[in-house]
């Protein structure tokens, strides 16, 4: 294998992994606070369409990214009001959010199908970002570097800071956290909003960086894979990074085999790979598990009311 090929494969790997990493990191924080938001796919689609529509209209991918964050947070707030304030079933609410995201992105995106924009550009100057070898390190857009920085930041926040400790306490034992005087619901709102922001960015990565063209259901179920990754990570940001790149590798392999014209696999069989891999990984996680509930936060998915 030539070094040029290796560089190209690594570039594809990083591009495929970044949206998964962003979306699943946001969900990890929400789940650490005890909230299971199954609407990741829907929030990603909201971010993807808002990012594209705004980038197309303003000509600025930067403003598009901000719009994607706002759209992701807005979508997550629908979930929060229903699941946190009105104590609705979190599984059903998350599903509703995904159905909503599919419908809303398809409706808003209808006018943009097939339109193109200038994709998100690398951060570093061309001398570095287009260097045949160094582009592996310097050839990426802002979201790639942001995703790595956020993994470190979230890991530090959850383990080393007081607010992080409180967030985990709310997820592990909401009644005690409430009794001590922490605002359980407010903290969960914040965690869900963070999840929404990162899902929005993850979705926008599809429409602004990977394929700078709008297509219906652009995220193709990646939001669900992001949810599985959180389980895979055992709610640890470092392992989440590993998991996201593992799945990125599966998708890269799919693309490489397709590009190489490998014919003994039908393209449909290759397209199944990420979903089969998800099931395989979830199964292996369970086989390797020693204790009860896979290190999940104890209050995950349970509604909380103070009265």
């Amino acid at each position: 294998m030539t070094s040029a090929m290796l560089v190209s494969i690594l570039m594809t790997l990083i591009a495929a992994s970044t949206p998964l990493l962003l979306a699943s990191l946001g969900e990890l924080v929400a789940e650490k606070s005890g909230v299971l938001n199954l609407g990741v796919e829907g929030m990603m689609l909201c971010g993807a369409v808002a990012g594209f529509a705004v980038a197309f209209s303003t000509g600025s991918t930067g403003i598009g990214l901000i719009a994607a964050i706002i759209a992701g947070v807005a979508a997550s707030m629908i979930f929060a009001v229903l699941a946190l304030s009105l104590m609705a079933n979190q599984v059903a609410t998350g599903l509703a959010l995904t159905i909503f995201g599919i419908g809303a992105s398809s409706l808003i995106g209808a006018g943009f199908v097939g339109r193109t924009i200038t994709r998100l550009q690398p951060v570093f100057p061309a001398m570095l970002s287009e260097h045949p070898l160094l582009r592996v390190i310097f050839g990426h857009d802002i979201l790639v570097y942001l995703s790595f920085a956020l993994v470190a930041a979230v890991g530090w926040f959850l383990r080393r800071t007081r607010p992080g400790l409180i967030l985990r306490a709310v997820g592990e034992n909401d009644a005690s956290a409430h009794a001590i005087g922490y605002p359980v619901i407010a903290i969960r709102y914040a965690a869900v909003a963070f999840g929404g922001a990162l899902a929005g960015l993850g979705g926008a990565y599809f429409s602004l960086a990977l394929t700078p063209m709008w297509a219906d259901r652009l995220t193709a179920g990646r939001g669900w894979i992001a949810l599985a990754l959180v389980v895979f990570s055992a709610w640890k940001p470092g392992r989440l990074l590993l998991g996201a790149y593992l799945f990125g590798a599966v998708m890269t392999l799919e693309l490489q085999l397709k590009a190489a014209g490998v014919t003994w696999f039908a393209p449909e069989v290759l397209a199944m790979a990420p979903y089969l891999a998800t099931i395989a990984v979830l199964t292996m996680m369970s086989l390797g598990r020693k204790t009860g509930r896979l290190d999940a936060p104890a209050c995950l998915g349970k509604p909380f009311s103070a009265s």
Partner: peptide, 15 residues
């Protein structure tokens, strides 16, 4: 796509 949006809104309102 509006049909899907109506259906999702209905589920939101039900919940």
């Amino acid at each position: 796509a509006a049909t899907g949006l109506f259906q999702a809104t209905l589920l939101f309102m039900l919940l």
